[in-house]
Design a protein around this nucleic acid. Structure first.
Length: 424
RNA sequence: GGAGGAGUGGCCGAGUGGUCGAAGGCGGCGGUCUUGAAAACCGUUGGGUGAAAGCCCCGGGGGUUCGAAUCCCUCCUCCUCCGCCA
């Protein structure tokens, strides 16, 4: 959430930054409500102060055995006015808060302007797509031909956009997750975390999924819980409402989790295979940092995610998202796109973002140095990586003419030394 | 799921309607003393908002009252017992 003071003090600057995302909102209504709110709050406070003063008087008089009936009658009137003013202030406060919760983060100044995906800027390309001497097949065809992937049965017990896989392919999913977690925890200094896969509405609001994007979430109304669309939600909100010791920052956490997305509005997109599923696994890196650390940390997590692809020897490119493609909560985002030979293009496999104090403000995550005032942390996160999509990339890039799949060297120790996946 | 108990400052803990943002202790910080340390003693020690005065915060929310940490409702969390269960 944006700082209301910043909006109040530099409205043109905030409006201009928001406009860079496309159809910028009109802030004048918010500013008017905020002004009314402050006036109402001031009045309520004045009234409350009078009430408090008189209240002490009553206590003192009573203590001295004096008659208080006159003051009491006066107080009743003040109390009524106080309540009315407080009620008005509270309502306006709610309105301001609702408006703030619906405003997206301001893009960083160096984020390129653009209307959407096509305006993203390629920062670098690493690795060379392999030259096939046969037509590479999509992963779902490969998996079904090997008898190790089953979309029909998954749809039978759930619905479309769910998958089931078996044997060596299932094991590779586990191997990938284990490899990623081991890499981040042993080489990149992350602490592994397991956190809830179902969270409450407040957590979803903390990281920015609610109130605006409830349609993208699976919601268990009976219990008031939501299935997480990413471990970012659980892990970031673990620290909601806390004041952290500044010396412990940056806090670097890595979590493996299933992710659940309703994919509302993506009908007809990526309907085949594992690319766009309602349920998938992801290893997520989450960082809580001091403000001055966050730029460097965004570079770092991007590099950590790239390391996974490099170790797997998968070709990829790094994209700087433009203002029009930036997520609601992010100030700056870099996507990693892996080469998928069957699609003949690069596809997103990781998204690394700096949220600055946007999420911290919503979730109330602060830090304090010895003797200092608490201030908001900066939050960052990055996929390291989306496991399902990594499986897709491995299968497609490592496929052989006979439909078998080589196991990347780095995964072989995680798969009992298996070198090639062939028909079960 | 049923029955009961409990949530107060970094921690422990007092406070059952009035001058209580809250005794006392521990811990932290500063000081006195000491060659230094310990002990002792003195002082200090939460957060939000605001230019300030002030206002708000005793698990969350709501209510009663002129006035709530204290009374009522509701939700959450934890503990004990029973039931069920990976």
């Amino acid at each position: 959430m944006l700082d209301i003071r910043r909006i109040r003090e530099h409205p043109e600057e905030v409006a201009a930054a928001l406009a860079r995302r496309g159809n910028g909102p009109d802030l004048s209504a918010l500013l008017n409500t905020d002004a009314e709110r402050r006036a109402a709050a001031a009045e309520a406070e004045e009234m409350k102060a009078a009430q408090n003063r008189a209240s002490k008087q009553i206590a003192a008089k009573k203590g001295a055995g004096e008659d208080v009936s006159e003051v009491l009658a006066e107080m009743k009137a003040i109390a009524d006015r106080q309540k009315a003013a407080a009620e008005k202030a509270r309502e306006l406060d709610g309105q301001v808060n609702d408006a703030l919760l619906s405003l997206p983060n301001l893009p960083d100044a160096d984020v390129p302007d653009g209307g959407g995906e096509d305006d993203n800027v390629e920062l670098r390309r690493v690795g060379t797509p392999r030259a096939f001497d046969f037509a590479p097949k999509p992963h779902d065809e490969l998996g079904e031909a090997l008898g190790l992937m089953d979309f029909a049965r998954a749809a039978k017990i759930a619905q479309a956009r769910f998958a089931s896989y078996t044997g060596a392919v299932a094991r590779m999913e586990r191997a990938l997750a284990a490899f990623m977690l081991d890499l981040h925890t042993t080489e990149h200094g992350f602490t592994e975390v397991v956190a809830p896969y179902l969270v409450n509405a407040q957590a979803m609001q903390g990281t920015g999924q609610l109130p605006k994007f409830g349609d993208d979430l699976f919601h268990i109304t009976e219990d008031g819980l939501y299935l997480i669309p990413t471990a970012e939600v659980s892990v970031t909100n673990l620290f909601a409402g806390e004041v952290l010791d500044g010396a412990t920052l940056p806090l670097k956490l890595a979590a493996f989790s299933p992710c659940f997305r309703r994919e509302a509005g993506s009908y007809g997109k990526d309907t085949r295979g594992l690319i766009r599923q309602h349920q998938f696994h992801k290893v997520e890196m989450v960082l809580l940092a001091r403000p001055e650390q966050s730029d460097e940390m965004l570079d770092a997590i991007t590099a950590h995610a790239e390391t996974v692809l490099q170790r797997l020897e998968l070709p990829y490119r790094v994209m700087q998202l433009c203002t029009g493609d930036l997520g609601f909560s992010a100030a700056s985002t870099r996507d990693l796109e892996v080469w998928l030979p069957a699609q003949d293009k690069y596809r997103e496999i990781s998204s690394c973002s700096n949220f600055r104090d946007f999420q911290a403000r919503r979730a109330g995550i602060r830090f304090k140095d010895a003797g200092g005032k608490p201030q908001f942390v900066h939050t960052l996160n990055g996929s390291g990586l989306a496991v399902g999509r990594t499986l897709v990339a491995v299968m497609e890039n490592y496929q052989q003419a006979d439909g078998t799949i080589q196991v990347p060297a780095v995964l072989q120790p995680y798969m009992g030394g298996l070198k090639v996946i062939s028909r079960a």
